Computed example of a mutant assay.
Amino acid sequence: MKNENNEMQIELTPEIAEGIYSNLAIISHSSSEFVVDFVRLMPGVPKAPVKSRIILTPEHAKRLMFAIEENILKYEKQFGPIRMNDNNNNMPPFMAPGGEA
């Protein structure tokens, strides 16, 4: 929805504003879409529920990649480098099983 100044107004409901915590993203794709499943892994719990699924066109997936990269650079400029725990033998936080949706 755009106002008279041609600015987009985005509505954020209280429920959505709370956010969803995720510590694993599973990314798959087809020729026409990328599917990102956000999962919450909990220690000692055998099942990890998908908390949210986002479906994007390839173009929007690439735009998201660039936007995240830009924001990580801004974050690190302000707060310092983000440390990665490469010694973690657990499942990686981002996976692409088979690459097909």
Rank of each mutant, 00 (worst) to 15 (best):
M8W: 12
L24H: 05
P43A: 05
L64W: 10
E4C: 06
E70R: 08
V45A: 14
G99Y: 08
E59D: 07
I55G: 08
V50M: 08
A25Y: 04
S32Y: 10
A101F: 10
N71D: 10
E4R: 05
T13E: 14
G99R: 06
V35T: 11
T13V: 12
E59M: 12
A101Y: 06
G19C: 03
K2R: 01
I72C: 03
S31K: 06
I26K: 09
I72F: 06
M65S: 08
R53S: 12
R53F: 07
P93N: 11
E33C: 07
R83F: 08
A61V: 02
E7C: 07
F66M: 03
S31P: 06
Y21G: 01
P93L: 09
N90C: 11
A25N: 00
F79M: 08
M42H: 00
N85L: 15
E70L: 05
E76L: 02
L12D: 02
V39S: 04
T57C: 11
Q9C: 07
S31L: 08
T57R: 01
M65A: 04
S52G: 03
P46N: 08
M91N: 08
S52I: 09
N87C: 07
N6S: 02
K74A: 13
M91Q: 10
L12F: 14
E70F: 10
F79R: 00
H60M: 02
N88S: 12
D37M: 07
K47I: 14
E70Q: 14
F38A: 03
M84D: 05
V50T: 14
L56A: 11
P92S: 13
G99W: 13
K2C: 10
V35M: 00
R40E: 02
A67V: 01
Q9N: 05
F34K: 03
E100A: 04
E4S: 09
E70D: 13
R63H: 02
H29D: 09
D86Y: 15
E15R: 04
L41E: 08
E33W: 03
E76Q: 01
E7L: 09
P92C: 15
A61L: 02
I26F: 06
L24M: 13
P46S: 14
K2P: 00
T13K: 01
K77T: 10
M84T: 04
V35K: 01
I10T: 00
L41H: 10
N71G: 07
I10C: 09
M65I: 05
T57Y: 10
V35N: 01
K51W: 11
A101E: 07
M1L: 07
E4N: 12
G19H: 04
E69R: 12
S31H: 15
I55E: 07
I54M: 11
I54V: 12
A61Y: 00
A101H: 08
G19S: 11
M8T: 15
F34N: 02
G44L: 02
M84Q: 12
S31Q: 12
F79V: 06
P93F: 14
L12G: 05
E18W: 00
